[in-house]
Structures are given as structure tokens and as C-alpha cells.
Design a protein around this nucleic acid. Structure first.
Lengths: 130, 130
DNA sequence: AACGCTGTGTAATAATATAACATTTATAAG
DNA sequence: CTTATAAATGTTATATTATTACACAGCGTT
């Protein structure tokens, strides 16, 4: 089987919910929302999430156990993510900073590790919450 | 009451277990280990973990829900952490790279966010697992 | 002594995530 | 078209991670 190009029904439903939200959604909140569309069990949501993460359509905010759509057409592969997170209002923004990305992409430690992915989360207060 | 300098009994017990491990430990595995020392409930462990994270004695590996001791005398404040994680053997190492830290510390986005913390996790394969 | 703060102990429960199994659908190869 | 196989589905049950709520203890300050 070739690499899948089109999303399946469940994957579309889940992606749709996430894309409509400007902010990260939690798995069980997604589950609640998609019950009306015939998705009944956590596993159905988690499987769709796994796939969507794998193909780079969404990212997981690890510190929040939540999922956000990738708005950057470039990052079709979910291997390099940078987010800023407001600790007050919990607003999350994906950051695209060429210089920083380059720096991270080129980073080499002194242990001979071979990197294929990174995730960076900045925490602080957004303009509104300062 | 002044800012606490010395750790309490439970905090010491939990820190001790984590410091003795070269690798990150999960909360419930810690709980299992400390039962013989009189800590019986998850909350007792989580409360100690929270405190230890807050004072920088340990760090949470967000993508693994696990906790590792901070071996760097400098990072007494848990506000700037960089880890490398082997996706095969799950070996985790804290990275200290002056240039990278500096770059991250100085990073400014274009939204006027005020950062006070970041966490960066690199994923890949370690030397042994390549 | 009265207060505030931090921590403790305990029980219950919430929130997040996966295992196991039977079945179905999609794609490619013969 | 048939068959083989990879990928996804549906369902039930369960594992794992983390928090709420409440009663109380210890310590330093006022």
C-alpha cells in the first residue's frame, strides 16, 4: 500500500474540529464534540490523533496534553515544532523563526546522537496577561 | 515563614529515589519504590514532585511524563531545560550548551510575549541504538 | 494564643491513554 | 476478478497519570 494521501472519515472529523479551534484541544473534549458524528470511543479519537500527528497536520502540546492544528504549510512533517504558551490564559501560538529553527536543526551534542525531531515550548505571559 | 531551605521528609525520600536513578522515573514507579518508606498514596508523591520541580532539583520530561534529577549545580531554577531522548532505548540526557541556551534565552517573538521559561526536547537515536 | 503558611494523610475520583479482539475497507499484485 | 495485505474501524475493558476534597499537624510570626 502506498503512503496514504487522503484522510479517512474519522481522521477528517477529528482534524476538522481541531482546525476550527484556534487553541489546543484535549482528546476527551474532542471526543465529546465528535460524538454527534458517530465517534463513540476514546480510541477512535486517539487513533485519528496519532495519524494526524504523524503526517504533520496537527501537533501535540506535550506540556498540556492537547492538540493544535498546524497552520504552516511548510511543516508537513511534524519534526520541528516551537510553541509559545501563556501560563495565564493558556493561549498557544506556533512559532516560525527561521534563525532559531536553523540553530536547532543544526544542533549537535557531544555524544554522537542522531536527531530527527525536536519540540520546544516557551512559557510566559502574553501581551494581554502581562 | 521564610522560603524553605531544607526539604521535608517526603520530599527527601522522593528526591533520593530520583537521584539514584540515571534515567527518568514515572510517578507511580516512584510510588511503588517508596511504599516501604511509608509513602502510601499518589498524592504524596505528586506533591513532593511538584515542589522538587519548582525548586529545580528535578525536571519533568513532558513527552514521557517522567522525572529526572538535575545534575547541573547551575540550574537551581527549573526555567531552562534541554534534553535529548533516544526513541529506541529511551535514554535521556540533560544538555548543557552555552550557545544554544543563550540563543533560547534571548529569543523574542514578534507578539510581545514575556518569557520566563522554556523546555526543549530533542528526539533521535543514541550512539548505541543507531 | 491566634493566625497564616506549608506540608501530611487518606479516600475518592477525574483525566489521559492503551490493550485486545473481531471486523471492514483500500490498495496492489497476480 | 481474486487474493493478499496494510490500514482503519468499532467495541469493551482496563491501565496509567493526575487532581479534588477534607481533616489535621508543625512552625514561625504577631
Amino acid at each position: 500500500m502506498q503512503k496514504q494521501e487522503t484522510l479517512t472519515k474519522n481522521q477528517k472529523i477529528v482534524l476538522d474540529i481541531i482546525e476550527k479551534s484556534s487553541q489546543p484541544l484535549k482528546a476527551y473534549s474532542i471526543l465529546f464534540d465528535v460524538k454527534k458524528k458517530g465517534i463513540n470511543a476514546p480510541l477512535q479519537v486517539y487513533r485519528a490523533l496519532d495519524k494526524l500527528v504523524k503526517i504533520g497536520k496537527i501537533h501535540k502540546i506535550e506540556s498540556r496534553n492537547a492538540f493544535i492544528a498546524c497552520k504552516n504549510s511548510k511543516c508537513q512533517i511534524a519534526n520541528a515544532t516551537i510553541f509559545s504558551i501563556c501560563e495565564s490564559c493558556e493561549d498557544v501560538t506556533e512559532i516560525h523563526d527561521h534563525k532559531l529553527s536553523e540553530h536547532l536543526r543544526d544542533f549537535k551534542d557531544n555524544k554522537g546522537m542522531k536527531y530527527n525531531k525536536y519540540n520546544l515550548e516557551f512559557f510566559g505571559l502574553c501581551k494581554k496577561c502581562v
